[in-house]
Design a binder for these strands. Structure first.
Lengths: 211, 211
DNA sequence: CTCTCGGTTTGATATATGTCAAAATTCGTG
DNA sequence: CACGAATTTTGACATATATCAAACCGAGAG
């Protein structure tokens, strides 16, 4: 990771709502998120859009573009954010010199593939409340990994964006949040979340088991 | 691609139903499909399984395992098949020597990420018949790319497997096929498909547009 | 501070897909 | 060739989620 830091000291700022890249943009760099957060989404000709992920500090985005030399999705800042460019040809050259960097890069790409498989599982075989519980637990875990509270955090995205990510309508997301709150699983006030019963939330994901 | 061929002349055979690898297996190699076809699926603790893809000749599988050194999904032969092992450490060593191989490997991984995004779009925002139409068009295109007919082919997977892949129940898949047939879009007899009206099938994907 | 507007919540109703069940067909095996 | 098992098709009905609509709330602008 230190190697990546060496590659670029230049941070660029993106205000909330700004595009880091758009679908069709020429591929130059991967981007390391230095502060803030982004969403990535793919567009369908007919205008529908599907959020494919929410990225936070330390995560690398832009991997989709390697395949065609053009970005196939777009990345939008969810809050004021900073990113470091990682020019890809330099990254490739460096990783030819340093097997550890090479392996690291491969792991990053593979991890993205595994993450995507998890989302397919979620979209293909979970019900609305399971999906939302899985989403909350995923956020919780990622906040914790960054030294923040695992139980209390702010959502950076709208109900609409959560819904798009989870394959649900925003009303369904809102209702599921309300239901979780009635059941004492969470306390939610618009965008601030507190997880009250992590155990039962975990049980919700994987309904099929007795809990 | 020739480089990959050099890497391994050894083909291994897998009869229909055999596992190429299972979830949890130690990662050693990527696999190039030399003949036949496979499905990959992820398992949920509670027993649910989600098919994440169908792979055919020339495609590389096992990329998920790089991230953790263990396979996170499993691959099952859909018919008698042959694969070439591509030992990953040798692949990495070679690609340090040969920038073109390095780039090729990166593109393969990135292409998988793009493919997964497409499936998320499908699962997250398409209706049953749109999903199935997209699936048929995808198969058609891949058969055509391999020199087979784009309009007439055999399905190698069951309704159940198609349903799992598309986030639908097998009955829904069957009904959608029947409906396509009534509408004169396809002729389907169990596992043999003939596409009769490619244009209207394309229109079905992306319902929102007037067609 | 108040207004406005986007976002959120909640309710009533519609609909796509799931569920359960039975019949029909195909396929593998003896 | 014939049997049984597995897969597929089809039907009747149930239900999760979408849709439409209205009320509510909160954050930013003036």
């Amino acid at each position: 990771m230190r190697l990546l830091d060496d590659l670029s000291h230049v941070k660029r700022c993106f205000p909330r709502g700004a595009y880091l890249y758009r679908s069709g943009d020429r591929f130059q760099s991967l981007y390391a998120i230095h502060s803030g957060s982004f969403k990535t989404q793919v567009l369908h000709e007919d205008g529908r859009e599907q959020v494919t992920g929410f990225q936070m500090i330390g995560e690398i985005i832009g991997l989709d573009a390697i395949s065609t030399d053009h970005h196939t999705c777009e990345a939008v800042a969810l809050e004021d954010s900073e990113v470091c460019d990682l020019p890809f040809t330099r990254l490739e050259a460096l990783s030819r010199e340093m097997p550890s960097l090479q392996r690291h890069l491969h792991k990053i790409m593979s991890r993205e593939i595994v993450r995507d498989q998890g989302i397919m599982l979620l979209l293909g075989s979970m019900r609305a409340e399971e999906r939302l519980a899985a989403f909350l637990l995923n956020l919780s875990q990622r906040f914790a990994a960054r030294g923040h509270s695992a139980t209390s955090f702010q959502l950076r995205m709208s109900r609409q964006e959560i819904g798009s990510y989870l394959g649900l309508k925003l009303e369904t997301v809102s209702r599921a949040f309300s239901h979780f709150q009635e059941d004492g699983l969470i306390c939610i006030k618009v965008r601030s979340v507190e997880i009250l019963d992590m155990g039962r939330l975990r049980c919700l994901v994987g309904q099929h088991l007795a809990c």
